[in-house]
């Protein structure tokens, strides 16, 4: 099962303007883990995701997906196994109907049309929106768009799901629904977010990033309770872990 592993070692990256975004990161994510990557704005989360997906290439250090090193050559193969859901679903839903969008990936991998069709239905059913197949993306609500964006990735049957702010711009109920979806997936998951309550609920492990470095890496319950650490990284404790402002009692006990 080691082939679902993601290993990052001593990663460095700077932008053309000289800004050093990643300054030596190392961590390993094992099969079936769900990992939250958190950090303040500009800490390097987005850059890290782009490096993982091979949209950017590191200056030094390496990324292993399973036992394969991520290079320009292995990129097509690796991208088939990593599925990334973007923060803004409008960036991901670029076709004129939801069905065509979900079929875009499978078609690019030259699957025959019957297989494409069955994957589209499967992916849309998994996220609970099979009835929206022929809808235009601009007709969807925020929550439906998010679900459709996730389906576009699921139809490629990835081993590892990477999500950038999956709950941003959602109303509370849609957020709940997306969180339920995330919890139902058995994939290895990497989720970046500022929604720390969501991270607490959906991730077992948390990696905190600060100034392009890993500031902390451990069980979600421990790290999200560590107020000094979170304060130092420009974050705050999830509301559900904060003590009651009236009586001081903690509502949620985490070991």
């Amino acid at each position: 099962m080691s082939h679902h592993k993601v290993e990052v070692s001593n990663l460095h990256f700077s932008y053309p303007d000289g800004h050093q975004a990643i300054r030596g990161m190392s961590f390993t994510i094992f099969h079936g883990e769900s990992v939250g990557v958190i950090g303040a704005n500009g800490a390097g989360k987005s850059t890290l995701l782009m490096l993982l997906m091979g949209i950017l290439f590191p200056d030094s250090g390496e990324i292993l997906v399973g036992d394969t090193r991520l290079t320009k050559k292995t990129l097509p193969m690796i991208r088939q196994r990593l599925g990334m859901v973007f923060q803004d679903p409008d960036d991901q839903l670029f076709m004129t109907t939801v069905g065509d969008d979900v079929a875009f990936g499978p078609r690019n991998y030259q699957l025959d049309e019957a297989e494409v069709e069955s994957r589209v239905i499967e992916a849309l059913t998994q996220v609970g929106i099979p009835h929206l197949k022929d809808r235009a993306p601009f007709k969807l609500s925020g929550g439906e768009k998010r679900a459709a964006a996730i389906a576009t990735v699921l139809s490629m049957r990835p081993d590892i799901l990477i999500m950038d702010e999956p709950t941003s711009f959602l109303d509370p109920q849609s957020r709940r629904r997306v969180m339920g979806l995330l919890k139902s997936f058995e994939h290895t998951k990497i989720i970046t977010s500022h929604d720390l309550d969501m991270v607490l609920e959906t991730c077992r492990r948390v990696i905190v990033i600060k100034d392009g470095l890993v500031a902390a890496d451990g069980p979600a319950g421990e790290i999200l309770k560590n107020q000094p650490l979170l304060d130092g990284c420009g974050l705050e404790m999830p509301l559900s872990l904060q003590s009651c402002p009236n009586c001081g009692a903690s509502k949620y006990e985490v070991e």
Binding site: M50, M53, I55, P76, R79, Q80, L82, G83, M84, F86, D88, D91, Q92, F94, D100, A103, F104, G105, R107, N108, Y109, Q110, E113, V116, T152, V153, M156
Partner: peptide, 19 residues
């Protein structure tokens, strides 16, 4: 970003419309 999203789903300059 759209270009990145397309590449991540195997886009290589070809547009494959359905049957």
């Amino acid at each position: 970003r759209v270009y990145a999203a397309m590449c991540l789903r195997g886009f290589a300059g070809e547009y494959n419309s359905g049957a």
